[in-house]
């Protein structure tokens, strides 16, 4: 990863109609060359709106977006030659074959990508001879990936790319994204499936109600938040043992074990348990799903249950 900005947004805002709440509000974001950047948020958070502005499919109400230092709007045609894009809704002409679409898009890009297309279809196990109307949702997503990757673009912008892909294909997708990064290229992908982001992204942004909540490296995000601490004693212990202890919450007991959510230092927790005989301590990093919920949980606008349903 370098510090060369590939995507930059400055106070990017979008409102779809008078009196409507903004779909995107004052977004300031930078994505650097050679990184896989995850753009997270529940449905309706503004992810697709951001992507559609970056692709010049819609225009911002306020602010600007730049790709490779150029205006996403004024220089759209030249920029699109350097970008591979897959929208959230993979719609194509139903009467075309996969090959027909690939050929058309190749002609628009002005190149012959036969070898690359063959390689991609082989890895993704995609039959291009079928008509689009015969493709399953998963196969349409695969075709979308082929179309996005075939011309080896410098930047990939993918909206919910793994939605509808089976686990094996998802693994291939992850490999393709890593290879893309290894080649010094950049990936910007949105998702509400956090597990895919956790495994391939260098940094993630969390978006909610059109507002950017956080941008962090995946590693830092996991380490800077809370941990789950499970303490095992030689005899049963009550959750009341740690009641009121600084940084401790969500205490629960199972047999001889006490599980708590700990934010901050260990010392207050250890002191509170000093009267007990401790046989084991297990510390687990929170998953991104849990971090995600921690960002949103207390707000009340998006109930935790709603988000957890979208998490695979």
């Amino acid at each position: 990863m370098t510090n060369v900005p590939i995507i930059e947004t400055h106070n990017l805002s979008k409102t779809y109609g008078a009196g409507q709440p903004p779909a995107l509000s004052q977004l300031n974001l930078t994505v650097n060359q050679g990184e896989i950047f995850g753009y997270l948020g529940p449905n309706g958070a503004g992810k697709s709106t951001t992507i559609r502005i970056l692709m010049d499919l819609i225009r911002p109400t306020v602010g600007e977006a730049k790709l490779f230092g150029k205006s996403a709007q004024a220089d759209a045609v030249a920029l699109h030659a350097r970008i591979g894009f897959m929208p959230g809704d993979m719609s194509l002409w139903a009467g075309y074959t996969g090959q027909g679409v690939v050929d058309y898009f190749s002609r628009v890009h002005g190149g012959n990508y036969t070898a690359n297309i063959k390689k991609l279809t082989s890895r993704l196990d995609l039959d291009l001879s079928k008509r689009i109307r015969e493709y399953s949702t998963g196969n349409k997503r695969k075709l979308g990936l082929v179309l996005a990757l075939m011309h080896e673009p410098e930047l990939l912008i993918l909206d919910e790319p793994t939605s509808g892909l089976d686990p094996l294909v998802q693994q291939t997708f992850n490999e393709l994204m890593r290879e893309h990064r290894t080649a010094g290229r950049t990936v910007f992908l949105s998702s509400h499936v956090l597990s895919e982001v956790q495994s391939i992204c260098d940094r993630v942004a969390i978006l909610r109600n059109g507002e950017l909540k956080a941008v962090e490296t995946v590693e830092k995000l996991i380490h800077t938040d809370f941990r789950w601490v499970t303490v095992t004693f030689d005899k049963p212990a009550a959750a009341s043992l740690v009641a009121g202890v600084t940084g401790v919450s969500h205490a629960s007991t199972v047999d001889n074990s006490l599980k708590v959510r700990l934010t901050g230092d260990f010392d207050p927790l250890l002191r509170a348990m000093s009267a007990m005989y401790i046989t084991n301590i297990h510390v687990a990093e929170p998953t991104l799903e849990e971090i995600f919920l921690a960002y949103y949980g207390d707000n009340g606008h998006t109930p935790a249950a709603t988000i957890s349903q979208t998490v695979r």
Partner: peptide, 14 residues
């Protein structure tokens, strides 16, 4: 209406 425009206009076509 079909959504194909999203794919089409993401290509280098003015």
């Amino acid at each position: 209406e079909s959504g194909v425009i999203n794919m089409l206009m993401a290509l280098p076509i003015a």
